[in-house]
Write a protein that binds this DNA or RNA. Sequence first.
DNA 1: TGTGTTATATCTTATATAAGTTATATGTTA
DNA 2: TAACATATAACTTATATAAGATATAACACA
Lengths: 243, 243
Amino acid sequence: MNIPSSPSFRPLYDQIKILITQSLIAGEWGPGDAIPSEIDLATRFKVSQGTVRKAIDELAAENIVIRRQGKGTFVASHSGERSSTRFLRISRDDGLAEYPQSDLLSVTRERAPENTAALLELRNGASIFCIKRLLSFEGKAQILDEIHVPAASFKGLDEHVIRAYTGSLYSFFESHFGIAMIRAEEHIKAVLAGPDEATHLKIAEGIPLLRIDRVAFTYGDRPVEWRRGLCHTNQFSYVTEMS
Amino acid sequence: MNIPSSPSFRPLYDQIKILITQSLIAGEWGPGDAIPSEIDLATRFKVSQGTVRKAIDELAAENIVIRRQGKGTFVASHSGERSSTRFLRISRDDGLAEYPQSDLLSVTRERAPENTAALLELRNGASIFCIKRLLSFEGKAQILDEIHVPAASFKGLDEHVIRAYTGSLYSFFESHFGIAMIRAEEHIKAVLAGPDEATHLKIAEGIPLLRIDRVAFTYGDRPVEWRRGLCHTNQFSYVTEMS
DNA sequence: TGTGTTATATCTTATATAAGTTATATGTTA
DNA sequence: TAACATATAACTTATATAAGATATAACACA
Protein backbone atom coordinates (compact mmCIF):
# COMPACT_ATOMS: atom_id res chain seq x y z
CA MET A 1 0.00 0.00 0.00
CA ASN A 2 0.93 3.57 -0.42
CA ILE A 3 0.42 6.50 1.90
CA PRO A 4 -1.16 9.36 -0.02
CA SER A 5 0.79 12.60 0.10
CA SER A 6 3.98 10.75 0.99
CA PRO A 7 6.84 11.88 -1.19
CA SER A 8 6.75 8.65 -3.20
CA PHE A 9 2.98 8.63 -3.64
CA ARG A 10 1.74 7.16 -6.87
CA PRO A 11 -1.89 6.61 -7.75
CA LEU A 12 -2.96 3.01 -8.02
CA TYR A 13 -3.39 3.10 -11.78
CA ASP A 14 0.16 4.35 -12.10
CA GLN A 15 1.44 1.49 -10.00
CA ILE A 16 -0.51 -0.92 -12.20
CA LYS A 17 1.04 0.72 -15.24
CA ILE A 18 4.48 0.08 -13.79
CA LEU A 19 3.61 -3.53 -13.03
CA ILE A 20 2.43 -4.07 -16.60
CA THR A 21 5.58 -2.41 -17.92
CA GLN A 22 7.69 -4.68 -15.75
CA SER A 23 5.98 -7.68 -17.28
CA LEU A 24 6.80 -6.25 -20.69
CA ILE A 25 10.43 -5.82 -19.66
CA ALA A 26 10.49 -9.36 -18.31
CA GLY A 27 9.15 -10.56 -21.63
CA GLU A 28 6.02 -12.11 -20.17
CA TRP A 29 4.25 -10.90 -23.31
CA GLY A 30 6.19 -10.14 -26.48
CA PRO A 31 5.42 -7.73 -29.31
CA GLY A 32 2.23 -8.71 -31.07
CA ASP A 33 1.00 -10.85 -28.16
CA ALA A 34 -2.30 -10.19 -26.45
CA ILE A 35 -1.97 -9.20 -22.82
CA PRO A 36 -4.55 -10.58 -20.36
CA SER A 37 -8.00 -9.04 -20.43
CA GLU A 38 -8.82 -6.09 -18.23
CA ILE A 39 -10.80 -8.31 -15.91
CA ASP A 40 -7.98 -10.83 -15.61
CA LEU A 41 -5.47 -8.10 -14.82
CA ALA A 42 -7.87 -6.59 -12.30
CA THR A 43 -8.09 -9.93 -10.52
CA ARG A 44 -4.35 -10.43 -10.69
CA PHE A 45 -3.50 -7.03 -9.26
CA LYS A 46 -6.49 -6.96 -6.89
CA VAL A 47 -7.88 -3.67 -8.18
CA SER A 48 -11.03 -2.77 -10.07
CA GLN A 49 -11.36 -3.07 -13.82
CA GLY A 50 -11.59 0.71 -14.08
CA THR A 51 -8.17 1.15 -12.55
CA VAL A 52 -6.61 -1.37 -14.94
CA ARG A 53 -8.45 0.40 -17.71
CA LYS A 54 -6.89 3.73 -16.87
CA ALA A 55 -3.44 2.15 -16.75
CA ILE A 56 -3.95 0.50 -20.14
CA ASP A 57 -5.39 3.74 -21.55
CA GLU A 58 -2.15 5.50 -20.77
CA LEU A 59 -0.03 2.70 -22.19
CA ALA A 60 -2.15 2.83 -25.33
CA ALA A 61 -1.72 6.62 -25.53
CA GLU A 62 2.04 6.04 -25.47
CA ASN A 63 1.72 3.45 -28.25
CA ILE A 64 3.11 0.76 -25.98
CA VAL A 65 0.01 -1.37 -26.38
CA ILE A 66 -2.80 -1.36 -28.94
CA ARG A 67 -6.43 -1.81 -27.96
CA ARG A 68 -8.81 -3.59 -30.29
CA GLN A 69 -12.44 -3.64 -29.34
CA GLY A 70 -13.77 -7.18 -29.17
CA LYS A 71 -10.34 -8.73 -29.61
CA GLY A 72 -8.14 -7.64 -26.76
CA THR A 73 -5.11 -5.50 -26.00
CA PHE A 74 -1.87 -6.26 -27.78
CA VAL A 75 1.75 -5.39 -27.24
CA ALA A 76 2.73 -2.87 -29.90
CA SER A 77 4.97 -4.22 -32.62
CA HIS A 78 6.90 -2.85 -35.56
CA SER A 79 5.86 -5.81 -37.65
CA GLY A 80 2.93 -5.38 -39.96
CA GLU A 81 1.91 -2.94 -42.64
CA ARG A 82 1.01 0.16 -40.68
CA SER A 83 3.58 -0.27 -37.91
CA SER A 84 6.61 -0.36 -40.18
CA THR A 85 6.41 3.37 -40.90
CA ARG A 86 5.66 4.36 -37.32
CA PHE A 87 9.13 5.80 -36.79
CA LEU A 88 9.70 6.84 -40.37
CA ARG A 89 8.96 10.51 -40.75
CA ILE A 90 10.28 10.92 -44.26
CA SER A 91 7.65 10.97 -46.93
CA ARG A 92 7.21 12.00 -50.52
CA ASP A 93 6.21 15.58 -51.12
CA ASP A 94 3.29 14.54 -53.24
CA GLY A 95 1.90 11.61 -51.42
CA LEU A 96 2.05 8.82 -48.94
CA ALA A 97 4.97 7.18 -47.16
CA GLU A 98 5.83 3.75 -48.45
CA TYR A 99 8.42 1.68 -46.70
CA PRO A 100 11.73 2.07 -48.53
CA GLN A 101 14.10 -0.54 -49.86
CA SER A 102 17.01 -1.15 -47.50
CA ASP A 103 20.51 -1.97 -48.76
CA LEU A 104 22.93 -3.15 -46.15
CA LEU A 105 26.39 -1.64 -46.56
CA SER A 106 28.26 -3.03 -43.58
CA VAL A 107 28.00 -4.41 -40.08
CA THR A 108 31.01 -3.88 -37.83
CA ARG A 109 31.81 -4.37 -34.21
CA GLU A 110 33.37 -1.33 -32.55
CA ARG A 111 34.22 0.23 -29.24
CA ALA A 112 31.82 2.99 -28.20
CA PRO A 113 33.44 6.43 -28.23
CA GLU A 114 32.55 8.76 -25.39
CA ASN A 115 29.63 10.42 -27.16
CA THR A 116 27.96 7.19 -28.22
CA ALA A 117 28.54 5.58 -24.84
CA ALA A 118 26.89 8.50 -23.09
CA LEU A 119 23.83 8.40 -25.33
CA LEU A 120 23.41 4.64 -24.90
CA GLU A 121 24.26 4.77 -21.19
CA LEU A 122 27.23 2.47 -21.63
CA ARG A 123 30.75 2.74 -20.29
CA ASN A 124 33.36 4.19 -22.63
CA GLY A 125 34.75 1.56 -24.94
CA ALA A 126 31.82 -0.80 -24.54
CA SER A 127 31.31 -3.09 -27.48
CA ILE A 128 28.74 -1.92 -29.99
CA PHE A 129 27.57 -2.90 -33.43
CA CYS A 130 27.57 -0.35 -36.19
CA ILE A 131 25.21 -0.95 -39.07
CA LYS A 132 25.48 1.10 -42.23
CA ARG A 133 22.71 0.97 -44.75
CA LEU A 134 21.10 2.85 -47.56
CA LEU A 135 17.38 3.47 -47.81
CA SER A 136 15.90 3.92 -51.26
CA PHE A 137 12.46 5.00 -52.33
CA GLU A 138 11.46 3.69 -55.75
CA GLY A 139 15.02 2.74 -56.51
CA LYS A 140 16.41 6.15 -55.65
CA ALA A 141 18.79 6.31 -52.68
CA GLN A 142 17.56 8.86 -50.17
CA ILE A 143 18.88 8.09 -46.70
CA LEU A 144 22.29 6.97 -45.54
CA ASP A 145 21.97 5.48 -42.07
CA GLU A 146 24.59 4.69 -39.47
CA ILE A 147 23.07 2.73 -36.61
CA HIS A 148 24.70 1.91 -33.29
CA VAL A 149 23.45 -0.65 -30.79
CA PRO A 150 25.07 -2.16 -27.70
CA ALA A 151 26.58 -5.55 -28.55
CA ALA A 152 25.56 -6.93 -25.17
CA SER A 153 21.87 -6.56 -26.01
CA PHE A 154 22.19 -7.74 -29.61
CA LYS A 155 24.22 -10.91 -29.29
CA GLY A 156 24.71 -12.74 -32.55
CA LEU A 157 23.95 -9.80 -34.79
CA ASP A 158 25.86 -9.91 -38.05
CA GLU A 159 25.48 -9.17 -41.71
CA HIS A 160 23.96 -12.53 -42.54
CA VAL A 161 21.11 -12.51 -40.04
CA ILE A 162 20.16 -9.00 -41.08
CA ARG A 163 20.20 -9.89 -44.74
CA ALA A 164 18.14 -13.00 -44.07
CA TYR A 165 15.42 -10.88 -42.55
CA THR A 166 12.81 -9.19 -44.67
CA GLY A 167 11.04 -6.32 -42.97
CA SER A 168 11.95 -3.22 -41.03
CA LEU A 169 14.99 -3.08 -38.82
CA TYR A 170 12.92 -2.53 -35.69
CA SER A 171 10.80 -5.52 -36.58
CA PHE A 172 14.04 -7.49 -36.88
CA PHE A 173 15.22 -6.25 -33.49
CA GLU A 174 11.94 -7.39 -31.99
CA SER A 175 11.90 -10.86 -33.43
CA HIS A 176 15.59 -11.68 -33.01
CA PHE A 177 16.51 -9.90 -29.80
CA GLY A 178 13.19 -9.27 -28.11
CA ILE A 179 13.90 -5.56 -28.02
CA ALA A 180 10.91 -3.36 -28.78
CA MET A 181 11.48 0.28 -29.62
CA ILE A 182 8.76 2.37 -28.09
CA ARG A 183 10.00 5.94 -28.20
CA ALA A 184 12.64 8.00 -29.96
CA GLU A 185 14.05 11.50 -29.79
CA GLU A 186 15.44 13.17 -32.87
CA HIS A 187 17.72 16.16 -33.33
CA ILE A 188 17.85 17.53 -36.83
CA LYS A 189 20.34 19.78 -38.54
CA ALA A 190 21.05 20.82 -42.10
CA VAL A 191 24.48 19.80 -43.42
CA LEU A 192 26.31 19.54 -46.70
CA ALA A 193 26.92 16.22 -48.41
CA GLY A 194 30.51 15.03 -48.04
CA PRO A 195 32.32 12.56 -50.30
CA ASP A 196 30.82 9.50 -48.61
CA GLU A 197 27.25 10.75 -48.75
CA ALA A 198 27.71 11.95 -52.31
CA THR A 199 28.86 8.51 -53.42
CA HIS A 200 26.13 6.53 -51.76
CA LEU A 201 23.25 8.91 -52.42
CA LYS A 202 24.51 9.51 -55.98
CA ILE A 203 24.53 13.26 -55.58
CA ALA A 204 27.13 15.99 -55.83
CA GLU A 205 29.16 17.02 -52.81
CA GLY A 206 27.80 20.15 -51.23
CA ILE A 207 24.15 19.23 -51.76
CA PRO A 208 22.20 20.09 -48.57
CA LEU A 209 21.04 17.12 -46.48
CA LEU A 210 19.08 16.61 -43.30
CA ARG A 211 21.19 15.11 -40.57
CA ILE A 212 18.80 13.27 -38.30
CA ASP A 213 20.22 12.04 -35.00
CA ARG A 214 18.06 9.63 -33.12
CA VAL A 215 18.16 7.93 -29.77
CA ALA A 216 15.56 5.16 -29.47
CA PHE A 217 14.30 3.72 -26.21
CA THR A 218 12.77 0.44 -25.13
CA TYR A 219 10.59 -0.29 -22.09
CA GLY A 220 11.57 1.64 -19.00
CA ASP A 221 13.12 4.41 -21.10
CA ARG A 222 16.27 2.44 -21.66
CA PRO A 223 18.22 3.78 -24.67
CA VAL A 224 19.18 0.95 -27.00
CA GLU A 225 19.95 2.56 -30.32
CA TRP A 226 21.71 5.62 -31.56
CA ARG A 227 21.60 6.41 -35.24
CA ARG A 228 22.52 9.17 -37.60
CA GLY A 229 20.64 9.44 -40.86
CA LEU A 230 21.70 11.67 -43.72
CA CYS A 231 18.74 12.38 -45.87
CA HIS A 232 18.44 13.86 -49.31
CA THR A 233 15.32 16.02 -49.31
CA ASN A 234 14.96 16.87 -52.93
CA GLN A 235 11.63 15.17 -53.43
CA PHE A 236 11.08 14.19 -49.80
CA SER A 237 10.33 15.97 -46.56
CA TYR A 238 10.63 15.23 -42.91
CA VAL A 239 7.07 15.47 -41.66
CA THR A 240 6.01 16.10 -38.11
CA GLU A 241 3.06 17.38 -36.15
CA MET A 242 2.74 19.28 -32.94
CA SER A 243 -0.01 20.29 -30.57
CA MET B 1 -29.99 10.69 -29.20
CA ASN B 2 -27.91 8.52 -31.42
CA ILE B 3 -28.57 5.08 -32.77
CA PRO B 4 -25.59 2.84 -32.07
CA SER B 5 -24.15 1.17 -35.18
CA SER B 6 -25.65 3.83 -37.41
CA PRO B 7 -23.05 5.18 -39.83
CA SER B 8 -22.87 8.48 -37.96
CA PHE B 9 -22.60 6.90 -34.53
CA ARG B 10 -20.50 8.83 -32.07
CA PRO B 11 -20.12 8.00 -28.42
CA LEU B 12 -21.64 10.50 -26.06
CA TYR B 13 -18.32 11.77 -24.78
CA ASP B 14 -17.31 12.51 -28.34
CA GLN B 15 -20.47 14.51 -28.91
CA ILE B 16 -19.76 16.44 -25.71
CA LYS B 17 -16.25 17.08 -26.98
CA ILE B 18 -17.70 18.54 -30.15
CA LEU B 19 -20.10 20.72 -28.18
CA ILE B 20 -17.27 22.07 -26.05
CA THR B 21 -15.20 22.69 -29.17
CA GLN B 22 -18.12 24.59 -30.70
CA SER B 23 -18.23 26.81 -27.64
CA LEU B 24 -14.52 27.43 -28.10
CA ILE B 25 -15.08 28.31 -31.76
CA ALA B 26 -17.94 30.61 -30.77
CA GLY B 27 -15.62 32.30 -28.31
CA GLU B 28 -17.75 31.52 -25.28
CA TRP B 29 -14.49 31.04 -23.39
CA GLY B 30 -11.25 32.59 -24.64
CA PRO B 31 -7.65 31.46 -24.21
CA GLY B 32 -6.68 31.50 -20.54
CA ASP B 33 -10.29 31.48 -19.34
CA ALA B 34 -11.63 28.78 -17.07
CA ILE B 35 -14.36 26.67 -18.62
CA PRO B 36 -17.26 25.61 -16.38
CA SER B 37 -16.60 22.83 -13.90
CA GLU B 38 -17.22 19.22 -14.84
CA ILE B 39 -20.38 19.17 -12.76
CA ASP B 40 -21.71 22.34 -14.38
CA LEU B 41 -21.03 20.98 -17.85
CA ALA B 42 -22.63 17.67 -16.92
CA THR B 43 -25.78 19.52 -15.87
CA ARG B 44 -25.71 21.67 -18.98
CA PHE B 45 -25.33 18.76 -21.39
CA LYS B 46 -27.50 16.41 -19.33
CA VAL B 47 -24.87 13.67 -19.05
CA SER B 48 -22.89 12.31 -16.14
CA GLN B 49 -19.75 13.91 -14.80
CA GLY B 50 -17.74 10.89 -15.98
CA THR B 51 -18.75 11.47 -19.58
CA VAL B 52 -17.80 15.15 -19.41
CA ARG B 53 -14.59 14.03 -17.78
CA LYS B 54 -13.70 11.75 -20.65
CA ALA B 55 -14.42 14.52 -23.16
CA ILE B 56 -12.24 16.98 -21.25
CA ASP B 57 -9.53 14.32 -20.85
CA GLU B 58 -9.26 14.08 -24.61
CA LEU B 59 -9.25 17.84 -25.10
CA ALA B 60 -6.50 18.04 -22.49
CA ALA B 61 -4.53 15.31 -24.29
CA GLU B 62 -4.72 17.44 -27.43
CA ASN B 63 -3.48 20.47 -25.48
CA ILE B 64 -6.69 22.32 -26.22
CA VAL B 65 -7.46 22.78 -22.54
CA ILE B 66 -5.32 22.52 -19.42
CA ARG B 67 -6.53 20.86 -16.25
CA ARG B 68 -5.39 22.15 -12.87
CA GLN B 69 -6.40 20.17 -9.86
CA GLY B 70 -8.26 22.29 -7.37
CA LYS B 71 -8.47 25.26 -9.72
CA GLY B 72 -10.39 24.23 -12.78
CA THR B 73 -9.95 23.59 -16.49
CA PHE B 74 -8.58 26.39 -18.65
CA VAL B 75 -8.53 27.11 -22.34
CA ALA B 76 -4.96 26.61 -23.55
CA SER B 77 -3.08 29.79 -24.36
CA HIS B 78 0.24 30.71 -25.89
CA SER B 79 0.67 33.44 -23.29
CA GLY B 80 2.80 32.68 -20.30
CA GLU B 81 6.28 31.34 -19.69
CA ARG B 82 5.96 27.69 -20.60
CA SER B 83 3.40 28.08 -23.38
CA SER B 84 5.48 30.42 -25.48
CA THR B 85 7.83 27.64 -26.61
CA ARG B 86 5.09 25.11 -27.20
CA PHE B 87 5.41 25.34 -30.96
CA LEU B 88 9.10 26.18 -31.03
CA ARG B 89 11.10 23.07 -31.71
CA ILE B 90 14.45 24.73 -32.19
CA SER B 91 16.75 24.54 -29.23
CA ARG B 92 20.40 24.95 -28.39
CA ASP B 93 22.54 21.86 -28.75
CA ASP B 94 23.85 22.20 -25.27
CA GLY B 95 20.81 23.18 -23.30
CA LEU B 96 17.33 24.50 -22.96
CA ALA B 97 15.09 26.42 -25.33
CA GLU B 98 14.68 30.06 -24.42
CA TYR B 99 12.26 32.21 -26.34
CA PRO B 100 14.18 34.13 -28.99
CA GLN B 101 14.22 37.82 -29.74
CA SER B 102 11.99 38.74 -32.65
CA ASP B 103 12.86 41.49 -35.13
CA LEU B 104 10.10 42.51 -37.45
CA LEU B 105 11.28 43.05 -41.01
CA SER B 106 8.06 43.83 -42.85
CA VAL B 107 4.32 43.42 -42.94
CA THR B 108 2.69 43.50 -46.34
CA ARG B 109 -0.72 42.83 -47.76
CA GLU B 110 -0.73 40.47 -50.72
CA ARG B 111 -2.90 38.28 -52.89
CA ALA B 112 -2.63 34.60 -52.09
CA PRO B 113 -0.96 32.60 -54.86
CA GLU B 114 -2.42 29.21 -55.68
CA ASN B 115 -0.21 27.25 -53.31
CA THR B 116 -0.82 29.48 -50.30
CA ALA B 117 -4.54 29.70 -51.00
CA ALA B 118 -4.79 25.92 -51.11
CA LEU B 119 -2.98 25.48 -47.82
CA LEU B 120 -5.11 28.10 -46.07
CA GLU B 121 -8.30 26.92 -47.77
CA LEU B 122 -8.86 30.30 -49.39
CA ARG B 123 -9.80 31.17 -52.93
CA ASN B 124 -6.97 32.12 -55.26
CA GLY B 125 -6.07 35.78 -54.93
CA ALA B 126 -7.64 36.15 -51.49
CA SER B 127 -6.10 38.91 -49.44
CA ILE B 128 -3.44 37.79 -47.00
CA PHE B 129 -0.91 39.40 -44.74
CA CYS B 130 2.72 38.46 -45.08
CA ILE B 131 4.92 39.01 -42.05
CA LYS B 132 8.67 38.74 -42.33
CA ARG B 133 10.75 38.56 -39.21
CA LEU B 134 14.05 37.44 -37.83
CA LEU B 135 14.41 35.34 -34.70
CA SER B 136 17.63 35.67 -32.74
CA PHE B 137 18.94 33.64 -29.86
CA GLU B 138 21.30 35.56 -27.63
CA GLY B 139 21.71 38.25 -30.21
CA LYS B 140 22.53 35.83 -33.00
CA ALA B 141 20.09 35.65 -35.89
CA GLN B 142 19.00 32.08 -36.41
CA ILE B 143 15.62 31.91 -38.13
CA LEU B 144 14.20 33.92 -41.01
CA ASP B 145 10.43 33.58 -40.98
CA GLU B 146 7.86 34.38 -43.61
CA ILE B 147 4.38 34.12 -42.18
CA HIS B 148 1.11 34.21 -44.11
CA VAL B 149 -2.34 34.67 -42.60
CA PRO B 150 -5.72 35.40 -44.19
CA ALA B 151 -6.46 39.11 -44.00
CA ALA B 152 -10.14 38.41 -43.38
CA SER B 153 -9.36 36.76 -40.04
CA PHE B 154 -6.71 39.25 -38.99
CA LYS B 155 -8.40 42.59 -39.61
CA GLY B 156 -6.32 45.56 -38.56
CA LEU B 157 -3.02 43.76 -38.49
CA ASP B 158 -0.11 46.02 -39.35
CA GLU B 159 3.47 46.70 -38.43
CA HIS B 160 2.59 49.03 -35.56
CA VAL B 161 0.28 46.71 -33.63
CA ILE B 162 2.79 43.89 -33.92
CA ARG B 163 5.63 46.07 -32.72
CA ALA B 164 3.52 47.34 -29.84
CA TYR B 165 3.06 43.79 -28.62
CA THR B 166 5.62 42.06 -26.46
CA GLY B 167 5.36 38.31 -26.42
CA SER B 168 5.11 35.49 -28.90
CA LEU B 169 3.34 35.90 -32.20
CA TYR B 170 0.73 33.28 -31.34
CA SER B 171 0.07 35.04 -28.06
CA PHE B 172 -0.46 38.21 -30.10
CA PHE B 173 -2.85 36.42 -32.46
CA GLU B 174 -4.83 35.24 -29.45
CA SER B 175 -5.15 38.55 -27.71
CA HIS B 176 -5.76 40.72 -30.77
CA PHE B 177 -7.75 38.46 -33.07
CA GLY B 178 -9.08 35.77 -30.77
CA ILE B 179 -7.42 33.11 -32.89
CA ALA B 180 -5.85 30.28 -30.90
CA MET B 181 -3.38 27.98 -32.63
CA ILE B 182 -3.88 24.45 -31.40
CA ARG B 183 -2.08 22.24 -33.87
CA ALA B 184 0.53 22.50 -36.59
CA GLU B 185 2.05 20.30 -39.26
CA GLU B 186 5.60 20.85 -40.41
CA HIS B 187 7.46 19.69 -43.50
CA ILE B 188 11.20 20.04 -43.31
CA LYS B 189 13.85 20.07 -45.98
CA ALA B 190 17.51 20.98 -46.16
CA VAL B 191 18.32 23.88 -48.47
CA LEU B 192 21.19 26.24 -49.21
CA ALA B 193 21.20 29.83 -48.03
CA GLY B 194 20.45 32.26 -50.85
CA PRO B 195 21.37 35.94 -50.93
CA ASP B 196 18.40 37.03 -48.84
CA GLU B 197 19.00 34.46 -46.09
CA ALA B 198 22.71 35.12 -46.11
CA THR B 199 22.14 38.81 -45.53
CA HIS B 200 19.64 38.46 -42.73
CA LEU B 201 21.24 35.53 -40.95
CA LYS B 202 24.70 37.03 -41.44
CA ILE B 203 26.10 33.89 -43.02
CA ALA B 204 27.67 33.03 -46.35
CA GLU B 205 25.55 31.95 -49.27
CA GLY B 206 25.55 28.21 -49.66
CA ILE B 207 25.43 27.47 -45.95
CA PRO B 208 22.94 24.64 -45.33
CA LEU B 209 19.68 25.63 -43.64
CA LEU B 210 16.56 23.89 -42.47
CA ARG B 211 13.53 24.98 -44.41
CA ILE B 212 10.56 24.45 -42.12
CA ASP B 213 7.14 24.77 -43.70
CA ARG B 214 4.29 24.95 -41.27
CA VAL B 215 0.53 25.02 -41.51
CA ALA B 216 -1.11 25.91 -38.20
CA PHE B 217 -4.70 25.19 -37.30
CA THR B 218 -7.24 26.66 -34.92
CA TYR B 219 -10.35 25.02 -33.42
CA GLY B 220 -12.14 22.70 -35.78
CA ASP B 221 -8.95 22.04 -37.74
CA ARG B 222 -9.25 25.29 -39.65
CA PRO B 223 -5.90 26.30 -41.19
CA VAL B 224 -5.12 29.93 -40.37
CA GLU B 225 -1.40 30.31 -40.86
CA TRP B 226 1.18 29.18 -43.33
CA ARG B 227 4.79 29.95 -42.64
CA ARG B 228 8.20 29.12 -43.96
CA GLY B 229 11.15 29.34 -41.62
CA LEU B 230 14.74 29.19 -42.76
CA CYS B 231 16.86 28.11 -39.88
CA HIS B 232 20.58 28.15 -39.37
CA THR B 233 21.47 25.00 -37.45
CA ASN B 234 25.08 25.58 -36.60
CA GLN B 235 24.59 25.61 -32.86
CA PHE B 236 20.90 24.71 -32.85
CA SER B 237 18.83 21.66 -33.66
CA TYR B 238 15.26 20.93 -34.52
CA VAL B 239 14.14 18.60 -31.74
CA THR B 240 11.24 16.21 -31.94
CA GLU B 241 9.98 13.08 -30.29
CA MET B 242 7.98 10.14 -31.51
CA SER B 243 6.24 7.15 -30.06
C1' DT C 1 -23.76 -21.39 -44.34
C1' DG C 2 -25.72 -19.47 -40.80
C1' DT C 3 -26.74 -18.78 -35.80
C1' DG C 4 -26.07 -18.50 -31.19
C1' DT C 5 -22.55 -18.23 -27.44
C1' DT C 6 -18.78 -16.29 -25.36
C1' DA C 7 -15.11 -13.14 -24.61
C1' DT C 8 -13.35 -8.96 -25.37
C1' DA C 9 -13.10 -3.83 -25.18
C1' DT C 10 -16.18 0.34 -25.04
C1' DC C 11 -19.48 3.37 -23.26
C1' DT C 12 -22.36 5.40 -19.65
C1' DT C 13 -23.81 6.26 -15.20
C1' DA C 14 -23.31 6.50 -10.22
C1' DT C 15 -21.01 7.00 -5.88
C1' DA C 16 -17.38 7.86 -2.74
C1' DT C 17 -13.03 9.51 -1.22
C1' DA C 18 -8.67 12.07 -1.85
C1' DA C 19 -6.20 16.07 -2.75
C1' DG C 20 -5.18 20.89 -4.35
C1' DT C 21 -6.81 25.88 -4.21
C1' DT C 22 -8.93 29.79 -2.51
C1' DA C 23 -11.53 32.66 0.41
C1' DT C 24 -13.22 33.49 4.75
C1' DA C 25 -13.59 33.16 9.47
C1' DT C 26 -11.17 32.86 13.76
C1' DG C 27 -7.92 33.30 16.53
C1' DT C 28 -3.23 35.05 18.47
C1' DT C 29 0.18 38.11 19.11
C1' DA C 30 2.65 42.50 18.96
C1' DT D 1 -6.35 47.72 17.07
C1' DA D 2 -3.50 45.84 13.38
C1' DA D 3 -0.90 42.27 11.49
C1' DC D 4 -0.24 37.74 11.06
C1' DA D 5 -1.09 32.89 11.54
C1' DT D 6 -4.27 29.06 11.63
C1' DA D 7 -8.46 26.66 11.00
C1' DT D 8 -12.48 25.84 8.30
C1' DA D 9 -15.46 25.61 4.41
C1' DA D 10 -16.44 25.41 -0.28
C1' DC D 11 -14.99 24.69 -4.47
C1' DT D 12 -12.20 22.24 -7.91
C1' DT D 13 -10.01 18.09 -10.30
C1' DA D 14 -8.10 13.33 -9.34
C1' DT D 15 -8.62 8.67 -7.99
C1' DA D 16 -11.07 4.40 -7.27
C1' DT D 17 -14.87 1.25 -7.37
C1' DA D 18 -19.05 -0.82 -9.16
C1' DA D 19 -22.48 -2.14 -12.42
C1' DG D 20 -24.94 -2.53 -16.55
C1' DA D 21 -25.56 -1.87 -21.63
C1' DT D 22 -23.40 -2.05 -26.17
C1' DA D 23 -20.07 -3.09 -30.07
C1' DT D 24 -16.99 -6.22 -32.06
C1' DA D 25 -14.82 -10.51 -32.90
C1' DA D 26 -14.02 -15.40 -32.70
C1' DC D 27 -15.66 -19.82 -32.36
C1' DA D 28 -18.65 -23.85 -31.82
C1' DC D 29 -22.27 -26.14 -33.64
C1' DA D 30 -26.42 -27.18 -36.03
